[in-house]
Amino acid sequence: MVKEDLADALRSKPRHGESFAARAARALRRTLSSSAASEVAAITRTAAVLQQPVTTGRQIAVTSIRGGSGKSTVAALLGTAYAHYRHDPVLFLEADPALGSLPLRLGAESLRWTTSEVADIVKADMSLLDVTGYLVQLPNNAWLLPASQGQIGVMLDSRAYERAVVALRRYFGVMVIDCETLPTEVARVALAAAHGRVLTAPATPEGITSTFSVLQWMQGLPRHVIAGTVVVLTELVAHSGVDFDEAAQRLRSTGVSVQVLPYDRHLAAGGRIHTELLAHPTREAAARLAADVFQLSLAQKRH
C-alpha cells in the first residue's frame, strides 16, 4: 500500500525547478503522513468499539475442536485487549481444567481458588473487593480465575460452571471464557449462554475442513449461536501456504465472521505473552478480533 501511494505521489506534477531527489523526498513525507493518519484513524475506530458501555457484562466464550489450535492464546489476547481499552474490570475465566495454558500465557505466578470452588463461595451480597480476593490479579484491572491449580484430575461440570458465571458476571464488564474443546458439555453450555463466541482453527487444510463441518453442525442450533460466532484462523507456522481468502470465503458461507491471527515468533514460543514483543501485524489482528467479537456481543441478548 505504501509503495503504491509513493508511486502515485511521484507521478504528481513536479514543482518548478525541483530535482527528482527533492520530489521523491516530498512524496515520501506525504505518503508516510497519509499512512500514519490512516493507522491512527483505524486505532481510533477500534477503540471506539471496544469502549462502548454495557448494561450487563459481556460473556465471550473461546473454544476449538481440538487442542493445539491456539485457543488459550486467543483468549489471552482478547482479554488483554479488553483490559487495555476498557475502564471496567475484565475477568479471564478458565473453564478448561485439563492443565490449560491460560495462566501461563497470562503470567500468573500463583493459583489459589478454582472455578468450581468459587462457584460455591461468591454470594450476592459480596462487593467487587470481596470477590477479587479469590482471584489472581493481572495488569490493567484484569483478573484470572483458573480452572485448576496445575493438578491433574480437577473436575468442572456444567452446573458448577453455570453457578460460577451467574455469581461473577455482575462484577465484570467483560468475561473472556477459555473453554474446553468441543463437543464437551461445558463448552456447549458456554457457547449457548455467551454473548460472543470465538472458534479457533489451525490454518491448515485439515483444520479448515474440520471447522467447516463443525459450523455446519452449529447451523442446526438456535440462530443466535452462529450469528454471534467469529472463527479465528491461527497461523501456527510461518508461511503456511493456506489461501486465507478462499478459506475465509468458505467458512463465512455458514454465517460466521472470520479473522486471521498471523504467525508470530513470540506467540510460538509458548510462554507468557508480552504485548510489546508481538509483531505489529499481530497486535493489529488481535485488536480487530477483539472489536469484531465485542460488536457481535452487543447485538446478542442472553439466551
Rank of each mutant, 00 (worst) to 15 (best):
A201E: 13
P202E: 14
A203H: 11
A203D: 13
A203M: 14
T204L: 12
T204N: 06
P205G: 11
P205F: 04
E206G: 02
E206H: 08
E206L: 14
G207E: 12
G207Q: 11
G207I: 09
I208P: 14
I208E: 10
I208W: 08
I208K: 10
T209H: 08
T209W: 11
T209G: 13
T211E: 09
F212M: 04
S213P: 00
S213F: 03
S213Q: 12
V214A: 15
V214T: 15
V214S: 15
V214G: 03
V214L: 14
V214K: 01
L215R: 12
L215F: 13
L215C: 10
L215D: 05
Q216Y: 11
Q216R: 15
Q216E: 09
W217F: 12
M218R: 00
M218W: 06
M218E: 01
M218G: 00
Q219E: 09
Q219W: 02
Q219Y: 03
G220F: 10
G220P: 00
G220W: 05
G220D: 12
G220S: 07
L221M: 11
L221G: 01
L221R: 09
L221K: 05
P222G: 02
P222S: 05
P222T: 03
P222R: 10
P222Q: 09
P222M: 05
P222E: 09
R223K: 05
R223A: 04
R223Q: 03
H224T: 11
H224S: 11
V225W: 01
V225N: 08
V225Y: 09
I226Q: 01
I226T: 09
I226N: 06
I226S: 06
I226W: 02
I226R: 05
A227Y: 09
G228T: 14
T229M: 03
V230H: 06
V230D: 10
V231L: 06
V231Q: 06
V231G: 10
V231R: 03
V232F: 02
V232W: 04
V232D: 03
V232A: 02
L233T: 08
L233K: 03
L233F: 02
L233S: 10
T234S: 10
T234W: 04
T234D: 08
T234L: 00
T234N: 15
E235Y: 10
E235I: 04
E235Q: 14
L236A: 14
L236P: 02
L236R: 12
V237I: 13
V237T: 14
A238F: 01
A238P: 07
H239F: 12
H239A: 15
S240T: 15
S240R: 04
S240I: 07
S240L: 04
G241R: 13
G241S: 08
V242C: 03
V242Y: 01
V242N: 00
D243E: 00
D243Y: 01
F244C: 01
F244Y: 09
